[in-house]
């Protein structure tokens, strides 16, 4: 099928994008188009106005300053995967970005789009939650910053309001070690289940995605040294998550994938 007609605005500054969003209630931001355009091609989404932010250079910055990695909303997945700064400051984020879709998808898809779309099986929203990141939003009313854990509310559901633009994602540079692993049917697919593991000395956390409606970060007071104890702990943690009955098989997968991520974290740095 083909998309329904819409009015198209190309913004070249954040300010301009915000003005268009405010002037046209119900308008949608067009970033990489890798989630929105398939929906429009099948007329599952029919926005009347699109505000294209691909020409907003100020949203394309990537830097490490003041103990934080600052990632502009328009930074493409491939840019993230190839950034030397990111690989140094938060290596697990480079690893995760390499697992998103395929090369052609990563060349267009943006972190802001992935976070706004909030597919429960996507890698970057879960990375933000696992790494204690936050989302910087702007609207005509001003700027606000939300912890990722508050931003993601459920299945494709976030704290985004009409007229909001995600401008930046922030991730604190941490002393912890992180590991990442996921299960996919074919390379490039969305994950069936994925996990990030944090090891901060003997404690840490596990963050699962693809299991329930949003990424879930569960703190761990003390990581058991032995594998069977660790698996028992992970089983207990995953047992408490609201997983759809038809996807009960994913709990076993979640334990395996977390165990793999745990070993990855061992190797980091």
């Amino acid at each position: 099928m083909k998309p329904a007609a819409f009015k198209y605005f190309r913004a070249s500054t954040t300010e301009e994008a915000l003005q268009h969003l405010e002037a046209h209630p119900g308008s949608k931001v067009l970033a990489g188009g890798q989630s929105l355009v398939p929906l429009m091609n099948f007329r599952l989404s029919r926005p009347e106005v699109l505000v294209d932010i691909n020409g907003v250079d100020e949203l394309n910055r990537l830097s490490v300053e003041g103990g934080e990695v600052r990632i502009g909303a328009l930074v493409r997945h491939q840019q993230l995967a190839e950034s030397v700064d990111v690989a140094r400051a938060v290596p697990v984020l480079s690893t995760a970005a390499q697992h998103i879709g395929h090369w052609a998808i990563r060349n267009r898809g943006t972190i802001g789009g992935s976070v706004a779309h909030a597919d429960p099986a996507s890698e970057l929203p879960a990375a933000l939650v696992a790494l204690n990141g936050s989302v910087v939003l702007r609207s005509a009313a001003g700027e606000r910053r939300l912890p990722a854990d508050e931003f993601f509310q459920g299945f494709f559901n976030t704290a985004l309001q009409d007229g909001d633009l995600i401008v930046e994602l922030r991730i604190p540079v941490s002393k912890s070690r992180f590991g990442f692993s996921e299960v996919v049917r074919r390379p490039g697919d969305f994950a069936l289940v994925g996990a990030y593991i944090e090891r901060a000395g003997s404690s840490g956390a596990v963050t699962w995605f693809g299991l329930s409606g949003r990424p879930e970060r569960l703190p761990v007071d003390a990581w058991p040294q032995g594998e069977s104890d660790r698996r028992a702990l992970l089983e207990r943690l995953v047992g408490a998550l609201p997983v759809d009955e038809s996807e009960d098989y994913k709990r076993a997968m979640a334990v395996n994938v977390a165990e793999r991520a745990y070993h990855q974290a061992e190797g980091e740095k």
Binding site: Y8, G33, Q34, V37, P38, N41, A104, I105, R108
Partner: peptide, 23 residues
């Protein structure tokens, strides 16, 4: 027309992209 098959791949400034997912 949903980015999955790759048949529509073209190069945009030298990089592969899906031409079905761009206006």
């Amino acid at each position: 027309e949903q980015g999955v098959c790759g048949a529509c791949t073209v190069l945009l400034d030298g990089e592969p992209v899906r031409s079905c997912l761009m206006f």
